Computed example of a mutant assay.
Amino acid sequence: MAGHRIFAMSFASIYPHYVTKVERKGHPVAELHQVITWLTGYDDAGIARVVADEVTMEEFFAAAPRWNPNASLITGVICGHRVEEITDPLMQKIRYLDKLVDEVARGKKMTSILRGDTEVPQAS
């Protein structure tokens, strides 16, 4: 999937869709931010900054303050593909985030979404 067009899309163009998805299902944006922070290490200010700067998805993941070592525990199907079988590392990270957003929207318990972590690590 090298050179996939989503890599060059801005995080700012995708983020509102994440917000709409979780809010439409009755969940607060804070839960969305919690899973983004858990996965990438971006805090609220960092998320606002990457949205304002319109960084690409590739840049968003490359500059992530702290990639969660438990990300590989994210499994399941997203967009018709098993996330654990995606071979392109960047596409897999994008789909990990998509999967987490879906789980928030579906109302899954946060401890389950965060793969058993009881707290979200702070961005460094």
Rank of each mutant, 00 (worst) to 15 (best):
N68S: 04
A62Y: 03
L114T: 05
G46R: 06
A30G: 07
A30E: 13
V35Q: 01
G116A: 05
T118N: 14
G41F: 08
V101A: 02
Y42C: 02
G46A: 08
L97N: 04
I113S: 00
A8S: 13
V104E: 01
T87Y: 02
M1E: 14
G76L: 02
G41E: 04
A63L: 10
W67Y: 09
F11S: 03
P69R: 11
L73H: 05
C79T: 11
I36Y: 03
L100T: 02
Q92I: 01
A123K: 13
L97K: 07
N68W: 01
W38A: 09
V29G: 01
E119L: 12
E54R: 07
I78T: 13
G76Q: 06
D88L: 09
T111V: 08
F61E: 03
D44H: 05
S13E: 09
A12G: 06
M110V: 07
R106Y: 05
R106F: 06
K108R: 13
C79A: 14
E58S: 11
D53A: 12
I14S: 08
E119I: 12
A12D: 08
W67P: 11
L97F: 06
I78L: 08
P69Y: 04
D117R: 12
L39M: 13
K25I: 04
L73M: 07
V22A: 00
Q92H: 02
S72E: 09
H81D: 10
T20A: 15
